[in-house]
Amino acid sequence: MAAPMSLLVEFGGGAELLFDGVKKHQVTLPCQPEPWDIRNLLKWIKQNLLKERPELFIQGDTVRPGILVLINDADWELMGELDYKLQDQDNVVFISTLHGG
């Protein structure tokens, strides 16, 4: 049983526009039987934070190609991507690269 978990979730590079323009979200994830990983964090974000056009953020069970994910300021590609097991007080940042240059 995973205990409730407190995270700082941030959106940038234009991704915040899908979240009412709010960049920083201090969130508390509820208790659940299985441990929290990025895969089910994305599901939770889709249900609880995402305000519009979900297809611009999530495709299938992962982020849309072109959105960078940083876990505690490290590229999620080095952290196991969707399988990374979240820890209390983790900082997860989503940055869109898809907006104007």
Partner: peptide, 15 residues
């Protein structure tokens, strides 16, 4: 994008 992020550069991003 990561260079801008790590350097804390301020840029505008809207489609």
């Amino acid at each position: 994008v990561l260079y801008a992020y790590f350097q804390g550069l301020d840029y505008f991003s809207t489609e």
